[in-house]
Design a binder for these strands. Structure first.
Lengths: 239, 239
DNA sequence: ACGTTGAGATTGCCG
DNA sequence: CGGCAATGTCAACGT
């Protein structure tokens, strides 16, 4: 559906029409009070009001990040020269408008949404299907094996029948090693599993994480996502 | 400086004029390939090209976050119906334009920037000036006391002359306790400091973090930022 | 509602 | 440039 853009004078604009995105270029100051305090001196900026009720204030820098914003649910009270956006937690965003240079509203309609491939869940799926890609002889016991502090990504048995806990990350950093160490501590309380080997798997593992892993007796394995994906696709083609 | 907005037909628009923000509402598909793969089916969206070279694609939801984007430094090659944004790491953002509903360019000029108050650095500064707000009798030895795994926020001595390591967070969570525990491990290797007390300080400390701290022999102290700030301002007024 | 975890996290700092 | 820590992190998902 094609919607002709509607132009109006500022005074004619409603506070916010449902289903419309509103863009305003204005010279303004902005103040945020909430989790912290932030202030923006007078300058020309873009103000975006989305149909979801969110308000963002953009400069011509900082890439996609706004200088200030308010996430829905929030309420916008707009006078001629002062907008106050507030939420139920007592946070407020106050925009003082000195001059509105232009504004426009446009209907975008619902977005069919974003499809992603290559996130951690995809990596976990590929490795669950082929744990031998991590280490020879590994057999999967369970994905998301539960402990009382959260689920371990993969629980396996190695060629010698020993339990192996695997933590998978896209990027291997120190936090991931600590996480696996906490799981291992828990799993070792289970007599049927003890002693449990730990393997930290990622597409790339940072040196600091490798050092900590070594200190904790945890093995590190780097895997190639594209190769795994290729092997999986090949298998699909065969069957 | 007041700049009259400039409207042009799509064909007349340059690839990207330096110093201008460009906004386009168009029916398009978007594909990102890089750290992962992402695809957006055909729909009407807002495309924002900032003066810093960044490109973002917004729907009317997801608050301030774009569906897809490319951060600078990146290059935009624009044909009539196809934009390709790429960077030196081989990531690409491809926008196929089916119909441009409108577009505008506007000069915003440099932004004077964002001033923040109440972030962790401010809290650390206030507590460095008044460590007795954490515990009676504390005297500051050094801020950012170095260890080989990173600096401790504050190193103090308590009333009994014992070394005290303080880790400060705005919000106290389990990671912060682990971090302090690692520091304590290191500091205890130093005979001039051993044994080192640990105090975990935050505006609010989550129960899980308190439990872990207790298990590690670390004290927890919650502080009131506004009260500290008030006391500091009062002192400034007195002198 | 709360807690946990992932994210194309981004951003800023310092070595 | 690379590692590290903070972020108004946000958002999705499970309890």
């Amino acid at each position: 559906m094609l919607v002709v853009p509607r132009w109006r004078r500022p005074a004619q604009l409603s506070c916010h029409d449902v289903g419309l995105m509103r863009l305003v270029v204005a010279t303004c100051t902005v103040d945020y009070t909430g989790r912290l305090s932030a202030h923006l001196p007078m300058a020309t900026r873009l103000i975006m009001v989305k149909a979801d009720g969110s308000v963002s204030v953009h400069s011509d820098g900082r890439a996609y990040k706004p200088l200030n914003w308010m996430t829905p649910p929030c309420q916008l009270r707009a006078d001629a020269d002062r907008w106050v956006v507030s939420n139920s937690k007592g946070e407020t965003l106050t925009i003082e408008l000195a001059e509105v240079l232009w504004e426009v509203e446009h209907e975008l309609g619902a977005d069919p949404g974003l499809r992603k491939d290559g996130v951690e869940a995809d990596l976990q799926e590929l490795l669950a299907a082929r744990p031998e890609a991590v280490a020879e002889g590994l057999r999967l016991v369970r994905r998301e094996y539960p402990t009382d502090i959260g689920p371990v990504d993969l629980l396996c048995r190695d060629a010698e029948g020993r339990a192996v806990a695997i933590e998978i990350k896209r990027r291997g950093e120190i936090d991931g090693v600590e996480q696996l160490a906490r799981y291992l501590e828990r799993l070792d309380l289970d007599g049927r599993l003890r002693p449990v080997r730990g393997i930290f798997v990622a597409q790339q593992i940072k040196p600091q994480a490798q050092v900590l892993a070594a200190a904790r007796g945890i093995d590190c394995v780097e895997v190639d996502y594209d190769a795994l994906r290729g092997a999986a696709d090949e298998r699909l083609t065969l069957f």
